[in-house]
Simulated scan of single mutants.
Amino acid sequence: MIQEPTSSESAAESDFEPEATRRDAGAAESSRANRGWWDRNADEYQVEHGTFLGDDRFVWGPEGLDEVEAELLGAPEDLKDRRVLEIGAGAAQCSRWLAAQGARPVALDISHRQLQHALRIGGSFPLVCADAGALPFADASFDLACSAYGALPFVADPVRVLTEVRRVLRPGGRFVFSVTHPIRWAFPDEPGPEGLSVSASYFDRTPYVEQDEQGRAVYVEHHRTIGDRVRDIAASGFRLVDLVEPEWPAWNTSEWGGWSPLRGNLIPGTAIFVCVRD
């Protein structure tokens, strides 16, 4: 069953076309907007990307880097009986793969609708609807934590999330998370040739916001440079042990938003940070 949060604020359905802009957006506004966006768009997202993600694959990003090959959490045989927290789990494809290796995953997402898709696909592990900045778990509850494009790109205060993840990990625990590669913010989010020319400053941290007619955010994404990410990791008490920038493989001919073979062969699209709690 899905464990509900103690309180939440859901966005009402509407038929407006949101306005895209760059402006400040704080933690509360970002959380409220993104919970509503994922609840409204979960069905479309799973229809569009469900085949690529599979029901029980662990894919780190649009390039298709698979955990079965990358072993960023460790060798598959070492995952047995490990308690693993997946943050921003969506339909819990990664947790389902982890369970198949003998791990004991918990899939957490801010979106109730995304977790309904996890429930539809099935699995014998807990589903928890909660904000990654306030994890409803005791200290040192997990051996590992992971997040494939979950939570970190959408929060105004990543140190708060990282600190929470470190709190619930046992000493020696590993947290691996992937995000849009920061260099991509300097380029238009287009898969074709128009997406290959720099159009903005890499150093502009102003969030990308889609807002309604009243100026209320309905989707927020936050930009951090590579240096920002490294400092956030250090500030939260983690030790960074690896930074993976997956290359675009020849077999992957698909486009996913601004990710494409054309761009992927020229500039990185995903950054994966491997962190350890000492």
Rank of each mutant, 00 (worst) to 15 (best):
D143G: 00
I226S: 14
P207T: 04
R229F: 14
A100H: 06
V168H: 01
L243M: 13
R120F: 08
P105T: 02
A70V: 12
H222A: 07
A234Y: 04
G74V: 06
I267P: 01
M1T: 11
R167G: 07
L115V: 08
A70P: 09
R174C: 03
E69Q: 12
L115E: 02
V220A: 08
G74L: 04
N34R: 02
D66P: 04
R277T: 06
R205D: 11
A70Y: 09
G192W: 10
N41V: 07
P261C: 10
L85C: 03
L243D: 04
T163Y: 03
A134R: 12
S197W: 12
E29D: 15
G195Q: 08
A200T: 11
G227V: 09
D43G: 12
Q116H: 11
S30G: 11
L53P: 00
S111C: 09
D15W: 13
F187Y: 15
V198A: 13
A250T: 14
V128L: 02
I2T: 05
R32E: 07
W38A: 00
I183S: 07
S111D: 05
V106T: 15
V165W: 00
P105A: 05
R113C: 03
G123A: 09
E71P: 00
V230Q: 07
E9T: 13
R35G: 05
R23Q: 15
L240I: 13
A107T: 04
L108K: 01
L115G: 03
V165K: 02
N252W: 10
D157W: 10
V161E: 01
V159N: 05
R263S: 06
R231C: 09
D56N: 12
T6Q: 15
L144F: 09
E164F: 03
G173P: 06
S260Q: 11
S236N: 09
P261W: 08
P249G: 02
V68L: 14
R229G: 02
R40V: 08
L79D: 00
S260R: 06
L169A: 04
A12V: 05
S178P: 02
Q214I: 06
T180W: 02
E69D: 15
P191N: 13
F52M: 12
Q116G: 04
R82A: 07
R82L: 15
E247Q: 12
V230Y: 07
R229C: 14
R160H: 06
G61P: 06
A235W: 02
G88E: 02
E17T: 10
N34Q: 10
E29N: 07
D232L: 01
F175S: 01
D212N: 15
P171S: 14
N41A: 05
S8F: 11
R263V: 07
S197I: 13
R216L: 14
P18H: 08
I110T: 00
S236L: 10
A118C: 08
V84F: 08
W185R: 04
G61V: 06
V155F: 00
E13D: 13
P246F: 12
R32S: 05
V84C: 05
G133F: 07
Q116I: 12
Y202T: 06
N265G: 14
R170F: 04
E17F: 14
V209A: 08
P246T: 06
Y45F: 14
A100D: 10
A25P: 08
